[in-house]
Lab assay of single mutants.
Amino acid sequence: LQLFIKTLTGKTFTVEMEPSDTIENLKAKIQDKEGIPPDQQRLIFAGKQLEDGRTLSDYNIQKESTLHLVL
């Protein structure tokens, strides 16, 4: 599923993930694309901070959802 990642600077980029992927996987993918170390990434969806060990489906993140990346 394609997700939109929006940064505080207003930049938006996309990543391609599976619902079974963990937040950790997502942070690694963001590191590949943007060079931001996972330990500096905080991801927010629907007002909640996402925890590394959980999956996208745990948070009911669907295709074309927008996640906010806070550094």
Rank of each mutant, 00 (worst) to 15 (best):
L3F: 10
Q62D: 13
G47S: 06
F13H: 04
Q31L: 11
L69W: 02
L69F: 03
V15S: 01
V70F: 12
I44H: 14
T22Q: 06
T14G: 06
D21Y: 03
L43G: 00
D21R: 05
V70D: 10
Q2T: 07
D21S: 13
I23R: 00
E34P: 01
L50S: 01
K33C: 03
E24C: 04
T9H: 10
L8R: 11
T7A: 10
K48M: 15
T12C: 05
S20A: 09
D21L: 06
E51D: 12
E16W: 11
L3N: 00
L8N: 05
P37S: 12
G53T: 07
D58N: 07
K48Q: 15
E64A: 08
R42C: 04
E24Y: 10
E18D: 14
V15Q: 02
K29M: 09
L1F: 12
D32G: 13
P37C: 04
K48P: 01
L56V: 07
K6A: 13
I44L: 11
N25M: 04
L71N: 14
S20V: 14
L3H: 00
V15Y: 03
L69V: 11
Q2I: 13
Q41G: 03
D52E: 15
K11W: 05
Q49I: 07
S65L: 05
P37F: 15
F4M: 06
L69H: 01
R54G: 07
K33T: 08
A46D: 12
N60H: 11
K11M: 10
N60D: 12
I5T: 00
I30E: 00
F13K: 01
R42P: 01
R54D: 14
M17Q: 03
L71I: 13
Q62H: 15
L56T: 01
G35M: 08
N25P: 02
D52W: 04
F4Y: 14
T12N: 08
Q41A: 09
K63N: 07
E16P: 09
S20M: 11
S57G: 12
R42F: 07
T22Y: 06
I36W: 14
I30W: 00
E24I: 12
Y59C: 03
F45P: 00
F45T: 02
Q49W: 05
T12L: 08
Q62A: 12
L43I: 12
E16Y: 10
I23N: 01
T66C: 04
P37V: 13
I30Q: 00
V70H: 14
Q31Y: 13
L67N: 02
Y59Q: 04
I44K: 10
Q41D: 01
L56H: 01
K29E: 09
L1Y: 08
L56P: 03
S57I: 10
K63S: 15
T14A: 14
Q49E: 12
A46C: 04
L67C: 01
Q49K: 05
Y59W: 02
E18H: 09
R54V: 05
A28P: 01
M17C: 03
S65I: 05
I23P: 02
T7Q: 07
T22F: 07
Q31P: 01
L3I: 06
K29L: 05
T12Q: 13
L3W: 01
G47Y: 09
F13N: 01
D58A: 07
E24V: 05
F13C: 02
E64C: 04
Y59R: 01
Q2G: 06
M17D: 01
Q62K: 05
L67H: 02
I30N: 00
L1E: 04
K27I: 02
Q49F: 15
T12W: 11
I44V: 09
K33E: 10
G53A: 05
D39L: 13
Q62G: 11
P19V: 07
E51N: 06
E16V: 13
G35C: 03
Q2A: 09
I61W: 03
L69P: 00
L43V: 10
R42M: 12
R42W: 15
K6E: 10
Y59P: 00
E18P: 05
Q40V: 11
K29D: 03
K29R: 15
K48W: 15
K33P: 01
T12M: 06
I44G: 05
P38F: 13
Q62P: 10
L50K: 00
V15A: 02
L1W: 11
S57H: 15
A28K: 06
S65K: 03
Y59E: 05
F4W: 07
L71A: 15
L71F: 12
Y59H: 03
K63F: 15
D52I: 15
M17A: 11
D58C: 02
Y59T: 02
S57M: 12
D58K: 03
T66D: 06
E51C: 03
K48A: 14
L56W: 02
Q62M: 15
D52T: 09
D21W: 03
N60A: 13
K48S: 08
Q31D: 09
L67F: 10
L1N: 09
L3A: 01
G47A: 04
Q41W: 06
R54K: 12
L43P: 01
P19R: 09
K6Q: 13
E51I: 04
K48V: 11
V15M: 05
P38E: 12
Y59I: 03
G53P: 11
G10Q: 06
P38R: 15
N25G: 08
L8H: 14
N60W: 03
D21E: 05
L43S: 00
L56E: 00
Q49N: 14
L3C: 02
D39Y: 10
G53V: 08
L43Q: 00
T22L: 07
L67E: 02
T55V: 08
E34T: 13
N25R: 12
T12R: 06
A28G: 12
V70I: 15
L1D: 06
T7I: 09
D58Y: 08
I5G: 00
G47L: 04
S65R: 03
V15D: 00
E24F: 09
G10W: 04
Q31F: 10
F45D: 01
V15C: 03
I36F: 07
G47R: 04
T7E: 12
E18L: 08
I36C: 03
D52K: 04
D58W: 09
V70T: 15
Q62E: 14
L26C: 02
Q41V: 10
E64H: 14
Q49T: 12
F45K: 02
G53S: 10
Q2H: 15
P37E: 10
D39E: 12
K11P: 14
I36E: 02
G35D: 10
Q2L: 06
R42L: 05
L67K: 00
E64F: 05
A28S: 10
F13Q: 02
T55K: 14
T22K: 10
D21K: 05
L43K: 00
T14L: 11
Y59V: 03
K6V: 11
F45S: 03
S65C: 03
T55P: 06
Q62V: 08
G10S: 03
R54F: 12
F45E: 02
Q49R: 05
E18C: 04
G10F: 07
T7S: 15
L50W: 01
S20G: 06
G47M: 08
K6Y: 11
I30K: 00
R54W: 12
Q31S: 09
S57K: 11
Q2P: 07
E24P: 03
T12G: 05
T12H: 08
A28E: 07
K6R: 10
L56K: 00
G10I: 03
I61F: 07
T14K: 07
P37T: 09
G35I: 02
Q41E: 01
D52P: 06
L50D: 00
N25A: 10
L50C: 02
Q41N: 03
G10T: 03
T22V: 08
F45M: 06
I36L: 05
I5C: 01
